[in-house]
Write a protein that binds this DNA or RNA. Structure first.
Lengths: 220, 220
DNA sequence: ATTTTTGTTAAAAAATTGTGAACATCGCAA
DNA sequence: TTGCGATGTTCACAATTTTTTAACAAAAAT
């Protein structure tokens, strides 16, 4: 998403970005930017954000977005002096580029950015709640720091429950997600695996709550 | 990260560095430098550090950073006389440059620095975990100090597992990386080679963990 | 020509999984 | 308070899946 009040700049950047294979959304001011972000949040992978904007300035937009999302934000500043770097990074900007923007330089920076992001991805995928840690890269599950060994079904079950922590997941949903949509088998099977999982979770067994008549829920 | 109280110098250096493709953080005094370092430690590859600073002087900043990090530090000194070389290197500075700084000279020095670092990387390519050493230059593998002889496939297998230590590597991934993307053959082949590798690893066999249903994982 | 490495197969071993039945618990209505 | 049906838990065991191991022959390297 490009946020800039000058149409010329938006068009310039959009053309370059689209030529690079990116898809672009545009907003001319802070207000519309926030509305658009709310609407298309899941489709937006990067925000190019001018500092000088009508309605809300770039800092405000950046802060607001940061309240709800960790999307990468690159700030565009009119003159380098305008950018208080410490301030910028503190409110959550990921990088900044000085105007006048040289599209080639910007593209290089954006590409580099995604590269870096890609590399960083694999690193730190640890879900952790209430003494239960799940590292998806290694499939290591720890209870109070001690590694426990789960079977594939048990692991998937736990993962889905944790991903939906706080929400009830029905036996049907669990069957669909762990066993697959085409699986034909009894619902009691889920109970059995929940049971085995609880046993392995030891004293943390009641992190998985039974919601009678509905399913199970992980208590985050 | 550039640490200097004179804004003009910071801007001068930053512009030159950015033109060279480096990304720059700035701090105007010792206190902010340390705060920033704490916050962005993982993003900082090099510190340019003025000796004369408000709040804490350069020596102090250098010492503090050294307590937590081995990041390269280049000190900037107003006049060469100010730099007590022995003292400087003793507290952990890696190099020093005399002011007035000629940006081109500094850039050359920095580039050289990273080159040296890069080359240094290539030299000492011994991966070592849990009593298993792998010297990629010579292809020598040692278990508890005793050299063992691995076949090419076994070696590649071990290397890839170790490079991804802590993460699960699936049989498909191993086939792709060891045998090549175009290889058509059974997955069981991987098992067989893992088996042979384990036998040669002797008592360290269980450094390669089986993650049933998913693949193998080297326990770093 | 000999040795080493490699891929495949099949049997053995190990771990996981599904099922049904017994048992426990809950909510509700008598 | 009790009894009942519905729902959830637990258990044992057989079936299945997956991994390990061994054996063997082809291919490659020495």
């Amino acid at each position: 998403m490009i946020v800039d009040d000058e149409e010329k700049i938006r068009i310039l950047l959009r053309d370059f970005l689209e030529r690079e294979g990116y898809r672009v959304l545009e907003a001319p001011d802070g207000k519309q930017a926030l509305e658009m972000f709310q609407k298309y949040e899941n489709d937006i992978d990067l925000v190019l954000l001018d500092v000088m904007l009508p309605e809300f300035d770039g800092w405000t937009v950046c802060r607001e977005i940061r309240k709800v999302s960790q999307v990468p934000i690159i700030m565009l500043t009119a003159r380098s002096e305008d950018f208080d770097e410490v301030h910028g990074f503190e409110i959550g900007a990921d990088d900044y580029v000085k105007k006048p923007v040289k599209p080639t330089a910007l593209i290089a920076r954006i590409n580099a950015f995604f590269r870096r992001l890609e590399r960083g991805k694999g690193e730190n995928n640890v879900l952790s709640f209430d003494g239960i840690e799940i590292d998806d890269a290694s499939h290591v599950v720890r209870v109070d720091g001690n590694e426990i060994s789960l079977s594939p079904k048990e692991y998937s079950l736990l993962l889905i429950l944790v991903e939906n922590r706080g929400k009830i997941v029905s036996r049907e949903q669990l069957l669909n997600q762990v066993w697959g949509y085409d699986y034909y088998g009894g619902l009691r099977t889920v109970d059995t695996h929940i049971n085995r999982l609880r046993i392995k979770l030891g004293k943390k067994a009641d992190a998985i709550a039974t919601i009678r008549g509905f399913g199970y829920r992980f208590e985050g």
